[in-house]
């Protein structure tokens, strides 16, 4: 028997706001075939990807409504899944771990390069 994956027609995803060089997102729920900037069914939160002066990225989520839409079989897009994983609402997304290991590797390499430069310089 062929296995058919259930595809929801509802999607919780990011809708781009802001202006040139200053992105800002709303977390919204909308039918999955609509364009990114299409009309949403409901806004569920916001996400500001640019850190503020205290080096914080602010995310606000209406968890009550998210639970409601999940009950309506809404699917969550990957960026939103990533955010909800970080806040402890869902299990942490595997890509977050991947990104973390990559970043750590990069940082270690950068440090090594610095040390080598310092040694060759002196």
């Amino acid at each position: 028997m062929p296995r058919i994956k259930y595809i929801s027609h509802l999607k919780i995803r990011l809708k781009l706001y802001g202006c040139t060089n200053r992105p800002f997102y709303h977390i919204v729920v909308m039918p999955h075939k609509k364009p990114r900037q299409g009309k949403e069914l409901e806004q569920l939160g916001t996400y500001d990807p640019m850190p503020n002066m205290f080096n914080e990225k602010l995310v606000s989520v209406n968890f009550e409504r998210i639970q409601y839409w999940l009950g309506k079989k809404a699917e969550i897009s990957r960026p939103v899944e990533h955010l909800l994983g970080l806040c402890g609402f869902l299990p942490i997304h595997p890509t977050s771990y991947l990104e973390a290991t990559r970043n750590r590797k990069k940082m270690a390499e950068a440090e090594q390069n610095k040390e080598e430069k310092a040694e060759s310089g002196s």
């Binding site: 914080e56 995310v59 402890g88 973390a100």
Partner: peptide, 21 residues
């Protein structure tokens, strides 16, 4: 929770706020 595997996932903190009604 403490998750050392997640160290360095981003260069800035994330602040999550519940804005339920």
């Amino acid at each position: 929770s403490k998750d050392p595997d997640l160290e360095g996932f981003d260069s800035s903190k994330y602040v999550f706020t519940d804005i339920s009604f």
